[in-house]
């Protein structure tokens, strides 16, 4: 009971600040400080969302599919590359600078190129999502592998463990918290990456919906879909947290003991 109460009080500041933000938004709209066409009221946004819900959900299905496949490919590549880089230092020296360089190229600049090379289908979107989600997971895994206490490795070696056993029993589990931190960031990037690539060319998806409502000057619908993307991203991050709790039950025990 006490723990539940503490959990509610911990969330209270966030709830209050969001409430204040919403109230401020409403106040700006009713006092006409910002004109309606530039900033629709929260009520108008809610109505627009309700009216277009079916359409938004239909487009969201496409965006989420692209985000899912892109994220999956990004994670797989990140895992392979990070593991290879960890195993052979020469690979780390060769690939790490390239990895950093890829992150300095703005997503918005690559998206049209990908559309040009791959067409208006799902491929360029999935590719863009894979590129944007690869980096946080790869860096997370690399940091995780490197953060493992070398005494654990000495211990395993003194038991006669092979490199593979050391990797599976020590390095990989040790890197999991870092992996999930990276995955959390990547998940939010995945949805945003998919929307951006749809924006720059495509037939369906939330990005396409956004460009259409923008051209129609339907800013209430634009705001509705922005908020919807925020909610989706938050839910996905929550899902990552849930996965982390399931995959790492010992962390839960540690936290319980600390309390």
């Amino acid at each position: 009971m006490r723990r539940r109460f503490q959990s509610i009080t911990n969330k209270l500041p966030a709830i209050i600040s969001m409430g204040i933000l919403l109230a401020l938004w409403h106040f700006l709209c009713i006092t006409k400080v910002v004109p309606d066409f530039m900033l629709p009221s929260p009520k108008a946004v809610a109505i627009a969302f309700y009216e277009d819900l079916d359409l938004i959900l239909e487009h969201a299905g496409v965006t989420l599919t692209e985000a899912f496949y892109g994220l999956l490919i990004g994670i797989l590549f990140a895992f392979v590359i990070a593991t290879v880089m960890e195993r052979w230092n020469v690979m780390y020296q060769a690939f790490y600078p390239i990895m950093i360089v890829t992150q300095t190229i703005p997503t918005i600049a690559i998206a049209p190129l990908l559309v040009l090379w791959m067409g208006f289908g799902m491929e360029p979107k999935v590719t863009l999502v894979a590129i944007t989600t690869f980096f946080p997971v790869a860096v997370g895994l690399l940091d995780g592998y490197k953060s493992v206490d070398c005494d654990y490795i000495h211990l395993m070696r003194s038991m006669g463990a092979s490199r593979y056993r050391i990797f599976v029993n020590v390095k990989l589990p040790g890197a999991l918290p870092h992996f999930f931190s990276g995955l959390k960031v990547s998940t939010s990037y995945a949805v945003v990456g998919a929307v951006i690539s749809e924006w720059l060319g495509g037939f369906e998806g939330l990005g396409v919906y956004m460009t259409r409502v923008k051209k129609a000057y339907a800013f209430d619908r634009m705001f509705a879909v922005i908020l919807f993307i925020v909610v989706i991203s938050l839910l996905l991050m929550l899902l990552v947290n849930l996965m982390k709790t399931i995959c790492m039950p010992w962390i839960r025990m540690e936290k319980r003991r600390e309390k």
Partner: peptide, 25 residues
Amino acid sequence: SGKISYMQQKDLLLPHKKIIDNVSM
């Protein structure tokens, strides 16, 4: 290596393994 067992200053129990799995490793 693997001939003599070696216990270090820290217990070095793997946090993600249950005690029985740490011991039987």
